[in-house]
């Protein structure tokens, strides 16, 4: 299956079409005196049917950026546009029906699914959102089948499923809303290690099939390499390297990306310990390397 995904990924050169999502100069700050700048001027675009991955170590601002994109985190500066419409920051009001065109999958399905409602009903929320926006409706049972679960399980409750299955249900709910853009914040890291790859592959194939753009946030680099068309590498609130995944992987230019990739242990049986970066190297990671941005296949 992995070969098929890789082939499909390499073939899918970012289409020249209009981007689904455009983000520009996003800044997120927490607290004041002194404010902590979690995201420091990040901009990127995601095209329809494209998977863009966001990688970086914990605390680099990945999640803050994702939340700012969907509008559940207040932006200090910057704009986000979904199919040309401004994405407002959410207050206490209900999100406008146009904005249900962007859906989010969270890290922990235990807290993102309502434990007291049947899963068919929860997937139905997505279907109703699609209908309210004037899009096609669908059958929750059919979504269960598409994420690899038994359609007969619609009337069950979340606790009757394993972690991986629950995340599949959360994905079904997000996709049932027929979003143009899917934002997934560490959707696989709470799952059992060996189901992670299959859930990630499922997310890619379903979002590509639906023609939705996807921002996939993960610290698992081997999964990212497998499913992302393009990658954004983030360090301390800034994007330090970005571009076509395989180009970045084969020839990383920024010192942080190099350190990150050098730290991945390779399953070659040679018994080589991966390189742990020294504290002193971290200073160089703050450098700006203009050539490392927006890299293309060349």
């Amino acid at each position: 299956m992995s070969e098929r995904i890789a082939a499909e990924r390499d073939g899918a050169v970012p289409s020249g079409g209009r981007p689904v999502l455009e983000a520009e100069g996003i800044v997120v700050e927490y607290g004041r005196r002194p404010a902590l700048r979690a995201v420091d001027g990040v901009g990127f675009t995601v095209a329809a049917g494209e998977v863009v991955a966001l990688v970086g170590e914990s605390g680099c601002g990945k999640s803050s950026l994702a939340r700012a994109i969907v509008g559940i985190e207040k932006r200090k500066a910057g704009t986000v546009r979904l199919k040309g419409d401004d994405v407002p920051t959410l207050g206490l009001r209900r999100r406008s029906s146009a904005m249900t065109g962007m859906q989010m999958v969270f890290q922990d399905p235990n807290s993102s699914l309502n434990p007291r409602r049947r899963i068919g009903d929860q997937i139905g929320d997505g279907v109703r959102a699609a209908l309210a926006r004037g899009d096609r409706g669908s059958d929750p049972a059919d979504w269960l089948r598409r994420v690899g679960l038994d359609p007969a399980m619609v009337s069950r409750f979340p606790h009757e499923f394993s972690g991986g299955q629950k995340q599949r249900i959360a994905i079904a709910r997000a996709l049932a809303a027929r979003p143009g853009m899917l934002v997934a914040d560490e959707p696989i890291s709470a799952l059992d290690a060996s189901t992670q790859t299959s859930v990630a592959a499922l997310m890619r194939s379903l979002s590509v099939e639906a023609g939705a753009g996807m921002l996939f946030i993960s610290h698992d680099l081997s999964v990212v390499r497998r499913i992302a068309d393009r990658v954004l590498v983030m360090y301390q609130g800034r994007v330090v390297e970005s571009g076509v995944t395989e180009t970045v992987w084969q020839n990383p230019l920024h010192p942080y990306t190099r350190a990150l990739l050098a730290a991945i242990p390779l399953p070659d049986g040679a018994g080589r310990l991966p390189l742990a970066p020294a504290e002193a190297d971290r200073l160089a990671w703050l450098d700006e390397v203009p050539a490392a941005l927006e890299r293309t296949t060349a």
Partner: peptide, 20 residues
């Protein structure tokens, strides 16, 4: 039991060196 699964790769590399 999966001692480095929850860690970032750069941090994982350090813990693996320690185990070795």
């Amino acid at each position: 039991d999966e001692p480095t699964t929850a860690l970032d790769v750069t941090v994982q590399a350090g813990v693996l060196q320690l185990l070795r």
